[in-house]
Every structure is written in C-alpha cells, then in structure tokens.
C-alpha cells in the first residue's frame, strides 16, 4: 500500500508551520509522530496533498510545572511521558497509560498532541486527559486559544480543532490532595489499542468521595466521561457496593455508539467496561485513601 502524492514541508518555527496550514487550508495535515496519519494515508483513508511535519520545530516537547499544574508540549512522546518523573508523581495514570500504548517503537514516535488531535475511538490518552481535566492549547498563524478538554473530543475522529490550528500544549490542573488515579485497560490482541479503557481520578476527603472524574475509551465512538458513574461515587463513602454500582453504569454514556467488532461484541464491551471501571475506581480509591 502506498500513499497518494503529497508535498512535504518541515518548517522549523511555529509561525512557518501555522502559515503553511493557513496557506493550504483544507488540503494540509499536520504530521506529528505519524503513527496514526501515515497508516491512514497508506490505506488511502486520508489523502492530504500537503504534510506539515512539526517534528523539526524546537520547543514542542517538554513536561514542566506551570503554575500549580503541569504543561506538556504537544510533541512529547509516550515514551517521554512514561519515563517523566514529574508525570509519574503528579499524574501516575498518565505515565501508566502511556506505558500501555502499543510497543516501544510506537511509544518512541507517537505524541500526546497527535493522540488527542486524532481522537481515535480506542486511543488511550484522550480518556486519561479527560479524567484529569485541563485544556488543549491551539494556535493559528494569528491567534491562540485554550479549549477545555471537556469540549475537545467531538465525535468519531473529530475534535474541536480547526484545520488551521496546531496543538502546542496540553495544560493539566493540579490534583487536590487526597486524589488517587488509575487507568485500567483491556487491549485488543491485534492492535493493542483499547477494547476498553477506563481512567479514574478520584478525590477522597474525610472518608467520602468529594470529586470523581471517570472517562471511558474504546467502547464508543470517542473518549467520554462516565457522568452517571461519577454521580454515584460523589458524596459517598467508596464501599465495594458503591463502587460496584457506579461501575455498572460506566458504559451508560456510550450505550448508543457501542463498538461491535470481531474482537468484542457490544455486549462483551459493555461488560468489560464495567469490569475495568471497577478496577480503575478501586485502584484510584485505594491510592486516594
């Protein structure tokens, strides 16, 4: 399989890159790690005529403190996330999820910006960032905006990003003390993407759950907050019974778009989502306590 013809640009500054995107608006695609885009191009499911490779731009790959929170450059690879001491200490689930993406070769190339922008229904990081909360910083030639992660994933392979925008950074908020996190994934035996993945960020104070953000990937058409699950957890003591009941609602939000394929029927996915919601919540609750 070979791609169709395209022109390739490798700008060294963001200004150049955003200018190219404006100039070829509608025809151009940003190329980051290439691990989603290039397979799509080889299958001719994507046929951009211009590629703007942002890999040669300095300063897009970092993990650093940013006020109370942490800022992550969009070109930061999974491997960098998985080994970053800052990520490991502040958002253990992000490091863990990054380490569960495919294999080392993929993790050395794939980027957090690419993962969010691609919004694969079975991608790991969209759910994790959704559970942490925060925002995506997007730039055009002229302006820059912050998009809340809760409004970022729009639909199957579709985000709130405009086609002249480049993600430059992901901003993650500080997690309150008493917060535990976990990511529980059931991987597809062929692709190693998530058949289902549940990210849980849970804050416990004085024995009750004060905050819970639970996000599910793999089951439906995009990463989605499991709000019913969150509601059941919030304000309660996290007893096994509460956790079980909350987990049983984990697939409720994606009910209408449940994936059904040769690896997992919709029924089995629903079940797996519940199992992994339970595991993620238990682990996050234990870490929070």
């Amino acid at each position: 399989m070979v791609t169709s013809n395209f022109d390739y640009f490798a700008p060294t500054t963001l200004d150049e890159a955003t200018s190219l995107l404006s100039r070829y608006r509608g025809e151009a695609k940003v190329l980051a790690g290439g691990h989603s885009l290039i397979p799509m191009m080889k299958l001719r499911l994507a046929e951009p005529t211009v590629l703007v490779d942002i890999g040669k731009i300095d300063g897009l790959s970092y993990v650093r403190e940013d006020g109370d929170g942490v800022a992550i450059g969009s070109m930061t690879t999974y491997r960098e996330l998985e080994t970053s001491s800052l990520v490991k200490s502040r958002y253990p689930l992000l490091a863990d999820a990054a380490s569960k993406v495919a294999d080392l070769q993929v993790r050395n190339r794939g980027t957090i910006g690419g993962s969010l922008a691609h919004s694969d229904p079975a991608g790991d990081l969209p759910a994790v960032v959704l559970a942490i909360g925060g925002s995506v910083v997007a730039r055009t030639r002229r302006s820059s905006r912050e998009i809340s992660i809760d409004r970022f994933q729009v639909d199957l392979l579709t985000t709130a990003l405009h086609d002249n925008e480049i993600i430059t950074e992901i901003k993650l908020p500080a997690l309150p003390s008493g917060t535990g996190t976990a990511y529980s994934k059931f991987h597809n035996p062929a692709s190693h993407y998530a058949i289902t993945g549940v990210a849980a960020v849970i804050t416990v104070s004085g024995g009750t759950c004060t905050e819970a953000r639970i996000a599910v990937t793999g089951a439906g058409d995009k990463a989605t907050r499991a709000r019913r699950t969150e509601r059941i957890l919030k304000g309660k003591e996290l007893t096994p019974a509460v956790i079980r009941r909350a987990a049983s609602r984990a697939a409720a939000e994606v009910q209408d778009t449940l994936n059904d394929d040769i690896f997992a029927s919709a029924e089995y996915r629903t079940h797996l989502t519940q199992v992994h919601a339970q595991r993620a919540i238990e682990e996050a609750a234990a870490a929070a306590g």
């Binding site: 397979p39 294999d103 035996p189 062929a190 692709s191 190693h192 040769i262």
Partner: peptide, 25 residues
C-alpha cells in the same frame, strides 16, 4: 488463543491487516 481469519458471508476478509489479525506477541 488469538489468530483467526474472519470472512463476512459475502467473502470480505475482516481480519485483513495486522491491526485486525491477532498474531501472538
């Protein structure tokens, strides 16, 4: 444990790539 070629009834191969055909790893 993992491998199988899957055809639809009208003869389309669903497990037609390494992303869809589960080799052991």
């Amino acid at each position: 444990l993992t491998e199988q070629a899957v055809y639809t009834d009208d003869g389309q191969l669903l497990s037609g790539s390494l992303m869809d055909y589960a080799l052991p790893s």
